[in-house]
Nucleic acid binder design. Structure first.
Lengths: 330, 330
DNA sequence: TTGAAAGCGTTACCAG
DNA sequence: CTGGTAACGCTTTCAA
């Protein structure tokens, strides 16, 4: 920029103002400098700007268990939408493991303006780092712990919808394949499903652990397949699509038919759920909207230094009927 | 750091040296300052360091079509290994689309030390940006265009291995489901496969486009399923695992058995390929090693300003036999 | 409307 | 071994 200022024969501060459309500068100077900038291939050094202004344009991004395609899809959405708003993602973490100490510190080292978390949770250390340094945090698909805003799908309601669907489909014995035991997302879905059944005087007869992974779901499916016909549930809710797909695979390998013998429903709406091989009845999470609202919340909080209260937004999921679940008069 | 220097009663430069284990400093001073830093919760501002030293510790990361789990797995590997080496990934792009102009410029704005690309390619503009500004570029799973180093799996040899396997398995009619038409990866695999067959005087009788996607592979599978029995290939090589899995799905839905009626093999070794539902015979790419070598190349080039020649490393894939392909005497 | 100068937190260079 | 100072590229007062 110093180079530009010499080229143009004006002061650095003038260049700075011209480039950011500061009102108090003459039309002519602005045009001249912007033209000069363009042809000389000038690019501002954001790091220097950050040093002086405090704003980096960087968002710390913590991505959950990417083995689950739902998180890949979230990532895709996040980098696209962040870029559209002039922000970049600093990848702090990906995968199922815990966030490491050094990683959490990168938050500070790089002066991120905010932090977007789609993972189980930041380690408590990292969470306290954010709090101490007033770095706003927004969780997506997670309930806020500590101090943070959050946006998620209405997991309880979605699960109720699924239960209602299965009920009207005439199912009698219900099973749940549970997710990772500590995540609010899984817990809410289990609860919503069971509560809705209870209201009709029906209990969930079987609950199996699926750990939110394909392998866990597959194992659960095998257990169910091996039950005596009379005891086997005829409706299974796996709280995540990958698990539901695994359950279907296990059932079919064991010679059972889906949905004729057993209905299976999932939750998430990952791309694979729509494919003919599984044609999963599920609740699709509004990924784009979730990321959009998350970014909204984050950006608002990045502006006003800690004055905004934590907020929690719940977006409706969409029940999508496909052929993995038997339906009324179907 | 200025705060620390006052706290310790020494010059800022001394603090800087103490913190980075500069040899020319007394044991005592170093210990004292490091202790002080720890208890005062001091964290260095990397951005300021970058401004002064020119080194950001940031790697621009361009991720390919993440709809394919192979790329998710690569991402997982990359963020882990980069962190282990003290580097962070700046996510510039993810997905199948082209890299946008503004995104490419972020490379400069944020002073990335180098760039890791696992995607089809940078837009030509972005590539020239890197060249002009001497930002080293390493491609993973891609052949270098322009000026860049690259590490990839030996796609030609892997495909030959698959051809050999199918040949000894007694297959007669061979088909290839092609990938994205412009990627070297797909092309090399197609070539290796066809060349090996040619050497035995056999031609590939059918080539279908699969576009490197599940849907493309599924469509190809359906085409094959609808062929008259006598003309239908009994061995199919889909150049990516997702496509191979899709082919299997399509075949089975049409009532064909895999591998009894048709053998299907893939390439990549994604996690899903190993699951019982598909049990895909494939070549698994050495993901961890690919990322490790890629980072090696990049780091070496980040150090020595443009003096190192472009390098190209080829790592062997591993043929893994599962049950999607009929085998000799099997 | 523009210029000058201070300052952001760090490193590098030159003295001592 | 340590201190001082300039410099990195930009923003932000404060003057003019």
């Amino acid at each position: 920029m110093v180079s530009l200022s010499r080229l143009a024969g004006v002061a650095a501060s003038t260049v700075s103002r011209a480039l950011k459309d500061d009102p108090r500068i003459s039309e002519e100077t602005r045009r001249r400098i912007q033209a000069l900038a363009a042809e000389s291939g000038y690019t501002p050094n954001i790091l220097a700007r950050t040093l002086s202004s405090g704003r980096s344009g960087l968002i710390g991004f913590v991505l959950g268990p990417i083995e689950n395609p739902f998180y890949s899809e979230l990532l895709l959405e996040a980098v696209g939408q962040a870029a559209a708003r002039g922000l970049r993602l600093l990848m702090l973490h990906a995968g199922a493991g815990p966030v490491e100490e050094r990683t959490a510190e990168a938050l500070l080292n790089y002066q991120v303006d905010g932090c977007l978390i789609t993972s189980a949770e930041l380690s408590s250390r990292a969470a306290s780092i954010c709090r101490d340094h007033e770095v706003p945090v927004v969780m997506i698909n997670r309930v806020p712990r500590d101090h943070a805003s959050a946006v998620s799908c209405d997991n309880v309601q979605g699960a109720r919808d699924l239960a209602a669907l299965l009920l009207t489909g005439g199912h009698k014995l219900f099973a749940i394949v549970k997710g990772h035991p500590t995540t609010s997302t899984s817990l809410d879905r289990e609860r919503g499903f069971a509560d809705h059944l209870s209201a009709s005087g029906i209990d969930v007869t079987l609950r199996l652990d699926g750990g939110s992974t394909y392998d866990g779901g597959f194992a659960a499916g095998r257990v169910i397949a091996e039950m005596p016909d009379a005891e086997r549930p005829d409706a299974i809710f796996a709280v995540a699509d990958i698990m539901a797909m695994a359950v279907i695979d296990a059932l079919r390998i064991a010679g059972l038919r889906v949905p004729e013998d057993v209905s299976v429903v999932g939750f998430d709406g990952i791309a694979a759920s729509a494919r003919p091989a599984h044609a999963l009845t599920t609740v699709v999470q509004p990924r784009a909207a979730m990321v959009a609202r998350g970014l909204d919340l984050l950006i608002a909080r990045m502006g006003s230094a800690g004055t905004l209260p934590d907020e929690r937004v719940l977006l409706p999921g969409e029940l999508v009927l496909r052929s993995s679940a038997r339906m009324a008069r179907g």
